[in-house]
Write a protein that binds this DNA or RNA. Structure first.
Length: 491
DNA sequence: CCTGCCGGGGG
DNA sequence: CCCCCGGCAGG
């Protein structure tokens, strides 16, 4: 697969002029219409970090309702009809939402809404009545009927279009903080941030607004900024004239740089920033102030965690204490402790800016940072105190959930296969992944990693075949039945 | 031999 | 997805 493929941008329709009034999307996607350039993307003015909870709640609620089996049948039918119109199933990860893909009707509606939200013209004009209501219903219905589809659609739309179009969204630098505005933005931000941001970018809970100068803000979203610049190849100079932008009555201020918009700095009024329009230019070829001083961090992959620590030993300690519920210094009895974490190179600046709360010092901190884990069932996922103590924990239970964007270098890399941590000694190569991110699983007792055998070392545990015998084959675990690695009697 | 299980293929 | 199995490799 080619995760790196980026949209080939058609010749920009309006290279140097101001964007068509009322158009928030890009020239490729066009406003929410379908056909021609494609079915739309979602644009976002800014995300409020932490607001993703709203979205999660939305989906969770939908799931709950669905589980209870009282969802609106009409909605289900509608979404189902829209969800899999043949093509979507076969090619679930179209590289670009803008590339001739049809959005389910509901999603398109939601998209339209979000698009409108993103439009400061409308935002400032405040058509508040319907805005908050519609999306909840639409998103909710779609989520209820087919959360996965909705996720896919929105995700794709966000990933790409956020990067592609953010330059088109003039984000007012100063905004009156009316109550309803906050609501709308939070809703939009919720959906968008939850889907488009890596946990890294999500960063800290809402801090003091305007804490840092706006000129620095864009560094908080390295992923976005890099994808923006990388996708600007064919037209590095397409941005609207800041002067005309400023002349617009309803856009009081020039747009922020794309990444700044993505990083959720919407209401932050950077005091004393010079109104220089140049550096928000979409394809600004010069990455300013990008220090290439990177630091290796370690990110916990357990469900609902995502803690980032600066040392592997600290991470192991964290996992041991927080997730495995062990005493920090107690030696593991069976020596079969798995650590799931990932190594990532992070920009030091973005670290200090956006991750201050994610770089914890105390490994015993029991409050995991919130980031979207939609699959996570409520409660602590890894059931260590299993009702059946005799049965060793199965990998699928104890393994943390997958992460899509551990380290995002480009605009969109779907979530190819769940990034599953490799078990000890397993020789399967890791799922292809963004560079500079490696998944670690280290056995406790052998922290100085033993040489990896060419083949998985024979398990000496009794396996289903031995235990139950051929005649009781139906008692085997499925893996054994399928001649796979035994799941019941893991070594 | 027997056994565990990877890789691949079919439905 | 679920399921099966050829074939390899360790014992």
């Amino acid at each position: 697969m080619e995760p790196k493929r980026l949209p080939k941008r058609a010749a920009p329709a309006h290279r140097e002029g101001s964007p068509p009034p009322g158009l928030t999307g890009c020239p490729d996607c066009g406003p929410a219409g379908r056909g021609g350039g494609g079915g739309g993307g979602v644009v976002l003015p800014a995300g409020k970090p932490g607001a993703n909870a709203v979205y999660t709640v939305l989906v969770e609620d939908a799931r709950r309702r669905r589980r209870r089996g009282r969802e609106d049948p009409a909605a289900v039918a509608a979404a189902a009809a829209a969800a899999e119109p043949g093509g979507a199933r076969k090619a679930p990860k179209s590289p670009l939402p803008c590339a001739g893909r049809e959005l389910p009707a509901e999603a398109e509606a939601a998209d339209g809404w979000l698009r409108r939200l993103a439009d400061p013209l409308l935002l400032d004009g405040r058509t508040a009545e319907e805005l908050p209501r519609f999306p909840a219903a639409a998103l909710g219905r779609l989520a209820a009927a087919d959360p996965k589809t909705m996720l896919r659609v929105l995700d794709a739309g966000l990933e790409q279009c956020l990067a592609l179009h953010s330059a088109y969204i003039p984000v007012p630098r100063q905004r009156k903080l009316s109550g309803q505005a906050g609501l709308d933005e939070v809703m939009a931000a919720a959906v968008l941030t939850s889907l488009s941001s890596s946990p890294l970018v999500l960063g800290p809970p809402p801090g003091p607004p305007g804490a840092e100068p706006g000129a620095e803000a864009w560094k908080e979203a390295p992923a976005m900024s890099s994808s923006c610049s990388s996708s600007s190849n064919t037209s590095g100079d397409w941005s609207w004239d800041p002067a005309s932008d400023r002349s617009s009555p309803s856009t009081p201020s020039p747009p922020l740089p794309p990444a700044a918009a993505a990083a959720g700095r919407l209401p932050a009024p950077p005091p004393g920033e010079e109104p220089d329009g140049t550096h928000f230019v979409f394809g600004d070829p010069i990455p300013r102030k990008r220090k290439n001083s990177t630091k290796v961090m370690f990110k916990c992959l357990w469900k609902s965690c995502g803690k980032v620590l600066s040392s592997s030993s600290g991470m192991q300690k964290h996992i041991r204490t927080v997730h495995l519920g062990r005493k920090a210094d107690l030696e593991q009895s069976d020596g079969e402790e798995d650590f799931y974490y990932t190594e990532l190179d992070v920009n030091v600046d973005s670290l200090t800016d956006g991750l201050s709360s994610l770089t914890p010092v105390s490994p015993t901190s029991s409050v995991p940072p919130a980031f979207p884990v939609l699959e996570a069932p409520p409660g602590p996922a890894p059931a260590l105190a299993s009702p059946e103590p005799a049965r060793p924990p199965q990998l699928s239970q104890s393994a943390p959930t997958s992460l899509c964007h551990v380290h995002t270098d480009h605009a969109y890399q779907g979530c190819p296969a769940p990034l599953r941590p490799i078990a000890v000694g397993e020789k399967r190569p890791p799922v292809p992944q963004a560079p500079a991110a490696k998944t670690h699983v280290v056995p406790t007792t052998a922290l100085p990693k033993p040489p990896v055998a060419t083949r998985k070392p024979r398990g000496d545990a009794k396996k289903c075949r031995k235990v139950y015998g051929m005649e009781n084959r139906d008692m085997w675990c499925t893996a054994c039945r399928w001649k796979k690695a035994c799941q019941r009697f893991v070594d």
